[in-house]
Nucleic acid binder design. Structure first.
Lengths: 346, 346
DNA sequence: CTGAAAGCGCTTACAG
DNA sequence: CTGAAAGCGCTTACAG
C-alpha cells in the first residue's frame, strides 16, 4: 500500500522504453503497434497499475468520454437498475454517464436533448424504452450524426444498434411453467399497447397455450396499461367470471401486484386458489406477498453492453451491411417464487 | 442558434479587458477582485454564455470535482431518487457523481471506499443511511481528512455536516391526522431498530397520542424491520387482537404495504374497515392499492443541499464552533391518499 | 488587487 | 510502425 503518486503515461513509457505516444496508441487500441512493443507497454501498465487520467484525455482529444442516458420515468425499478449499472460500467471504462429524464412533451424533450448534446458533447446516447421509439428524437439524432443504441425498441430495427431480450420466448416459457404445474385455465393481462413488448408477451402466451393444445375463452384476456391499477381492474373482471381461471399471467410485475390485490378482495388466496405470475423482476416482485414468480430481465448485461458499444465507437460505420452484429438479444431467467403452485383439485 | 465554438476563458478575458487569471478568480469566487473588474467579467461571461471546461479545470487544479455517494441498498426508491437528483445537481454545478454500493461486510466496504478515494480523488462524500452510521467508515474518513456530509444520521451529530428531516414532527402530525379523522385505536409498527429514525417516528406517534389524551394497549405496538414481510407479520398480530385498532401507522411504506396484505388476508377492507399510513412516499406508496397516505421526504432538496455543501468546500474548517450551520433540518409534507378514512361506527 | 509564465497528463497532427 | 513538438483550457505558484 505505498501511497505513491498515481502513474502517468510518461512513467509507463519510461519503464517500457518507448515514447508516450506508443503507450497512448496501445491503450487506445487504434493504430498498429508492433507486438513486441505492445507487450512491453502492457507489462509496464500492469506493473505500475496505470490508469489514464480521464480529464487529460478528454481535454486533449475531441472525444468527450461522456455517455448520455435518456429515460422517461425514473420511478420504475427498470430505470433505476439500468442507471446504477450504467454508472458502474461507465466508471470502469473511464467514461461518465449523463442521465436525463425526458419530458412527455416531445418538443421540450427535443430541446433538452439538444442542449445535452451541445453542452456535454456526448460520444453517444443510450435510449431506454419508451424513449427509444420517439420518432422525432431519433430523426434529430440521425441528423446531428449522434451515435446511439436503443434498449428494447419496437420498430425501425435497422436504425441503430439495439439490445433486448427475447420477450416472446420468455413469455412462452413462463406460460409453459404454469401449464406444467397443471394449469389449463390461464388468464392474461396484456401490457400497455404503446410498447412493443406487450405484443410479444401476449403472443408468447398465446403460442404456448396453442402448442399445448389448450384453448381459453376470450374473457380470460384483458387489456392493461402496465400500472398497478390497470392490473387490479383487469384481474377483477377476470376473477368475476363464473368459470374463472386458476392462474393469471400479467405482462409486468406492477399489474401482477394489482392482480394480487384483486385476488385478496375476492377472498382468493394466492397461490392456493390462484397462481399469479409477473414479468421484469423489479423491486415490487419481492415487495408484495407472496413474492412473485416472474421473468428476470438481464438489465445488468444490457447496461454493460450498451456502454461497451458506445465506448467502442464501432458503430460509426453502421451504414454498411454489418448491421447484423448490432442486434443483441440477451438471455433471460425465469424466477420461480411463491405466487405459483399447482391448481387445487375441484 | 449559431453553432459557434464554446467560449473559453481567454475569450471572456479579452472581452472583459482583463487577464484570464482575473476571470478564473472571479469564477472560483476565491480571491478578492475589484468590484469594477468583477462586473466586467460577469458581463462577458453572460454575453458569451461561458461555462468552464470541467476537464481542464480538473487537470489544472488539485480539486477533482468528483463527489462520492455511498449507499447500502440500491433497490429502495429512497436511494434511487436521491441518486437521480444528485446526478442532476452535480451536473449543474460542474461536478461528477461517483456512486458506489457499500457491502454489508464492513471490511470489504472499507477497502472499496479507500479505492474510490484514491482512484477518483473525490472532493467529498455523501453518506446515505445506514452507511452514515458506520463508525469504522467514519473514522477512516476523518483520518484521511476526507470531507463528508451525512444524510439522516443517528448519532455523532458533531462529526460532520448533516441533512435530515424532522422525523419526530412528521410522525406526530401523521398520527394527529388519524386522530382528527376520528381514530383513537391506532396501532404502530416500529421500524428497524438499527436505524435512528425508527425511534423518532415511534416517539412522535406516542407523543401525539398522549397530547390528545389517548391511551393505547401495548399489544397495538409491534416491532418491524422496514421490510414488507415484517410489516405483514406485525400487522397480522395486531389485527388478530379481539379489540383490534381502526388504524395502523407503519414506520415506512414497505411495512405499510405488508400491513395492507395482512388486512386483505383478514378480509378487512382498507380504508373502510382499517386505515393504514406509511412513511417515505416511495414508489411503493402508489404501487399498492389503495394508494398510501404517507409522509413525503424532501429527497430532492436533500440531494441538492448535499451536493452544494460539498461543492462549496466550506466545511473544511468544521473544527471551530460554527458547527451549527451544518445542521440542516428540512421540511416534509404529509400526503393524504386513499388508505385512510374516518373509522366506521361500531 | 492583478498578470505573465509554467504545467496539469494526455492526444493530435506532422514527420520519418 | 514510431517519436518530438505543440496544444487542449484551465489553475497554481510567483511576482509586483
Amino acid at each position: 500500500m505505498t501511497a505513491s503518486k498515481r502513474a502517468r503515461i510518461q512513467d509507463v513509457a519510461k519503464m517500457a522504453g518507448v515514447s508516450s505516444m506508443t503507450v497512448s496508441r496501445v491503450l487506445s487500441n487504434h493504430a498498429k503497434v508492433s507486438d513486441a512493443k505492445r507487450t512491453l507497454v502492457m507489462d509496464a501498465v500492469k506493473a505500475l497499475n496505470y490508469r489514464p487520467n480521464v480529464s487529460a484525455r478528454r481535454l486533449a482529444s475531441n472525444k468527450s468520454f461522456f455517455i448520455g442516458l435518456l429515460y422517461f420515468d425514473s420511478d420504475t425499478s427498470y430505470v433505476s437498475k439500468f442507471l446504477l449499472r450504467g454508472l458502474k460500467s461507465c466508471r470502469l471504462t473511464g467514461h461518465h454517464l449523463v442521465a436525463d429524464e425526458i419530458d412527455e412533451d416531445s418538443e421540450k424533450s427535443l430541446a433538452s436533448v439538444q442542449e445535452l448534446i451541445e453542452v456535454t458533447k456526448v460520444d453517444g446516447i443510450i435510449l431506454l424504452p419508451p424513449v427509444c421509439n420517439d420518432t422525432k428524437l431519433l430523426e434529430m439524432l440521425k441528423e446531428k450524426n449522434i451515435s446511439f443504441v436503443r434498449i428494447a425498441p419496437d420498430s425501425q430495427f435497422n436504425l441503430s444498434p439495439y439490445i433486448c431480450m427475447d420477450d416472446y420466448q420468455a413469455s412462452f416459457e413462463l406460460t409453459e411453467l404454469l401449464i406444467k404445474q397443471g394449469h389449463t385455465k390461464i388468464g392474461h393481462i396484456i401490457g400497455n399497447p404503446n410498447q412493443g413488448v406487450s405484443r410479444l408477451r401476449y403472443q408468447g402466451y398465446l403460442d404456448a397455450l396453442r402448442s399445448n393444445k389448450i384453448s381459453v375463452p376470450p374473457e380470460y384476456i384483458e387489456q392493461g396499461l402496465f400500472t398497478v391499477d390497470s392490473g387490479l381492474m383487469a384481474a377483477k373482471k377476470i376473477l368475476s367470471l363464473p368459470n374463472r381461471p386458476t392462474a393469471i399471467f400479467a405482462a409486468n410485475d406492477e399489474m401482477a401486484a394489482g392482480a394480487l390485490s384483486a385476488a385478496h378482495m375476492n377472498r382468493l388466496s394466492v397461490p392456493n386458489d390462484l397462481s399469479i405470475v409477473g414479468f421484469d423482476d423489479g423491486h415490487i416482485a419481492t415487495a408484495v406477498s407472496p413474492n412473485l414468480t416472474t421473468v428476470r430481465q438481464p438489465i445488468k448485461q444490457m447496461a454493460d453492453l450498451a456502454v461497451e458499444i458506445i465506448a467502442s465507437g464501432k458503430f460509426s460505420d453502421l451504414s454498411t451491411s454489418n448491421t447484423r452484429e448490432y442486434r443483441n438479444v440477451l438471455d433471460f431467467e425465469i424466477i420461480e417464487r411463491d405466487s405459483t403452485k399447482k391448481p387445487q383439485e375441484t
